[in-house]
Structure formats: structure tokens, C-alpha cells
Design a protein around this nucleic acid. Sequence first.
DNA 1: CCATCCATCGAATAAAATTCGTCCGGGAGC
DNA 2: GCTCCCGGACGAATTTTATTCGATGGATGG
Lengths: 155, 155
Amino acid sequence: MSSLDRIDREILEALQNNARLSNKELAAKVGLAPSSCLARVKRLETDGVIRSYRADLDARSLGLGLQALIAVQLRLHVGEAFGSIGDHLRSLPETVAVYCLGGTTDFLVHVVCRDTEHLRVLTIESFTSRPEVSRIETSLVFSFARSGLPVDRGA
Amino acid sequence: MSSLDRIDREILEALQNNARLSNKELAAKVGLAPSSCLARVKRLETDGVIRSYRADLDARSLGLGLQALIAVQLRLHVGEAFGSIGDHLRSLPETVAVYCLGGTTDFLVHVVCRDTEHLRVLTIESFTSRPEVSRIETSLVFSFARSGLPVDRGA
DNA sequence: CCATCCATCGAATAAAATTCGTCCGGGAGC
DNA sequence: GCTCCCGGACGAATTTTATTCGATGGATGG
């Protein structure tokens, strides 16, 4: 697992912006022959630098117009509970992201819901009803923007 | 913009899990001819249901081993300041995600850093030095997991 | 200086994307 | 009930792309 050179980083940046770039276009963009470019991409995949390729979907189009962040504080900070509640939170269909945090908040969970009733039921049935959970605080998400990792740093 | 049928949802789910699926494989998976499948995917793209395709990169491989959540509280809740600080936060290279929230916290920013020194400088230079910012609270992210939207709900 | 190694290249082959004319089935209007 | 119309699906033909593989050349280390 050698370090990433300039071309690797250009590939990563390009694929981060558009994962469906054809190998030919990608090769042209980074100034490599298609075959060489393909070899690099495959290496980046097997090395785990590229973890996956994902389509970014519009939540509203899927009938999920309401997003919230739920801060979770646990009752007992024992290893066992920590792992199981984390798995539980990650396994919820409404869960988009789970942060495991240091500080007073143990977990922060980003969820998507159809409406406020859905959110209400979710918080009760999947959060407060859990014995490990001491307290939650739900915040409405007005807007959410995500960007890629800064590929060009740390070279 | 008609509603999504079962096949549309299967396509979305498949592309959410692997955006680089070939159209042929995708067509086979959802039980459609390649040409029909392609037409649907294109429609989903132009309708904005599919917003983009992104490669998911490993932060550690890029030399970004430290992640944090920075909760930002603003001094003035005027429209002008709200927009400009939001743009500022989104434009930072270290920023991975920005949540605009209701509640005492106005913004929650997920950042990636090389090390603690990088984080220290970032919080000072890009957050607390801003006049609109009243107070920030930084939490270390021990782990972070993301999953896709629940495509099969709300049909 | 020579041998070696690794990444690149480019041509050949295999596979996939894309286009387009056609067909089928459901719904509206007569 | 019948016919026209429309949208989606099909599949063959064509274009484009991915993938493989042997050869080349520069850098490295002995």
C-alpha cells in the first residue's frame, strides 16, 4: 500500500465527483492511457482507498421530506451496550448516518422520515424505549449538504 | 414526474449500493431489457431522483485520520448572516457535511482533519474567528457509518 | 554499466452502451 | 364495445467502451 501520487489523487477526485465516469474519459482527464488508468482504479479499489460507489438519491422524491438529528445519551457506558445499541441504530431503515461521539452525547443519528408522525413513532419505538438509552434530543434538519473528502490535501 | 413504481425502486436501491453496476447487470437484476432499463435510469437522472454518483473514499488512506463534529451557534439569527456563514462552512475543504438545524445549535459541521493540530487551527481560523459565530462546541467522532436511503418505504 | 522491476502504452478482443424501429397493452373518447 | 392514442418495453444493429496482454522505456539498485 504505497502512498498516493498526484494521478491517483486526480482519479479519486474525479470519481468522487462522478462515479460513473467511463474509464476512457477518466483516463483522458488524468492524462493516462485507458489501460493504465484502469489498472490504477483497480488498485485503489483493492487497496480500500475506494470503498464503494453510491448513487446519491433525492430523499424528497422518495417521500422522505423530513430529516432529523437525534442525539442519544446512554445510561451505562459499558462496552457491551455501546456496541449493541450502535448496531441497532445503524440497522434502522430510517437511519442515514450514525456518529459515535466523545462528549456528553454518545451517538448522533441522522434519520429521514415521511412526516412528523413517522418521526414521533420512530423516536419512541426505536430510541426512548431502549433500556440503554438515558435521554435523547431531537433536532429538525432544515437543510443538509454533503461534499467529498479533500483529496488534494496531505500529499 | 410520476411516482416511482416497483422497478424504479429496485433500480434506485441497486445503484445506491453499487453505482458502477453495468446497465446490463442492472437490467438483469430488475428483470428488464437493457434498453428499457437505460431509459428508466436516464429518466430518474433527469427527474432529479438520482442526484449524482459518488465514489466513497477512505479518509484514513487520504491522511485524514481525525473526524469531528462542530456545533455552531450564531450571534444573530438574521437571514443574511445565516446564508453567508452556511456557504462559508460548506466551502471549507475539511467540511464533509453541513446540517442546518432548528434548536439551540444553528449548524452542525462534520469535518475531517489530519491530526489534532489541524483541527485546532481549523476551529480557530474558520469558526471562532467569524463574527457571526457566537459559540462552538467540538466533539470527536470515534466512528461514523453511513447507509443509503430506505428506497422501499413510502410506495 | 547492466540487470531488474514496474508502470505505461497501444493494438486486439470481448463486452457493454446506445439507438431506433417495432410491438404490445391499457385508457380515453366515440 | 370498438378504435385510436400513448407510453413503455423489446431486441437487433451500431457505436463506444472495457479489458487483456505483450512490448517498451525509465528508474533503481547492485
